[in-house]
Amino acid sequence: MDQLILALEECDFVNEPVCVPGDVADLFVFPNIVGQVNRTVFLIFLAAAIVIALLYFAFRRPSLVPTKFQAAIESLVGVVRNDIAVGIIGPDGIKYFPYLLSIFLFILVGNLFEITPLVNFPITSRMAIPLFLALVTWAIFLVVGIRKQGLKYFGELLWPPGVPTGLKPLVGVIEFVSTILVRPFSLAVRLFANLVAGHVMLSLLLVTGWIFISNLVTNYGEIGLKGIAGFAWFGLGLGIWVFELLVAILQAYIFTLLSAVYIESSIHPAH
């Protein structure tokens, strides 16, 4: 937040309706603290630690009648296990449950950093995390496809049943590009873009609101009654904050769900 305010401190609050940083990267790239370690790297490890802590404290001494905390974590785990792993992939899906639970919780915590006070930065808005996770999913569904069906898998993948022979070259190219080349990037970009957009909106609205309101008090001569607009920006920011809570949960769910759908399509090629 401090860095954001620094990035926006040269805000032309007299002439501009909203404070915009000179370079949008200022909202996403943090200076290094030690060596190559910046705030984002620290937050990535913090997300991992939070996931581990949540699971550890929920299942350290599980009781038959769960506490509220255990029940809450169990319901999250249950969604991934029953609705995604077994629900989408089938009974075989239980093998992929550890991976699906890992990506769901890691992305969920990373997304929720966006709306966590004092953190205010989703690690999934940095391409490294969505791209890495999407590539892992991509590798898994290709490996699973080859292991289950051998090289025939690529035939099934490129030419779905019922494609006329004349169209096979064209369909093959389209399927190759859409399934093998684009799929990991579409998976990554869906998550990345949602979180980037959310972070930009929240930062600009809340920081602009804050700057306008504080200048209304300290620099009334310059900003005049326009400073009241700061309340509107701040209020809108808080509204979007609630909306972003939904986006954070939904995007984690969608990423996990699509990973399961891709793995399922490699196991059961008929679909």
Binding site: V37, A48, P98, I129, L131
Partner: peptide, 20 residues
Amino acid sequence: PATPELIAGIIAFGIVFFFI
């Protein structure tokens, strides 16, 4: 992807996955 973040992501996710 920024290289330090990618490496941090791989290590952190690896730890999470191993633990889970």
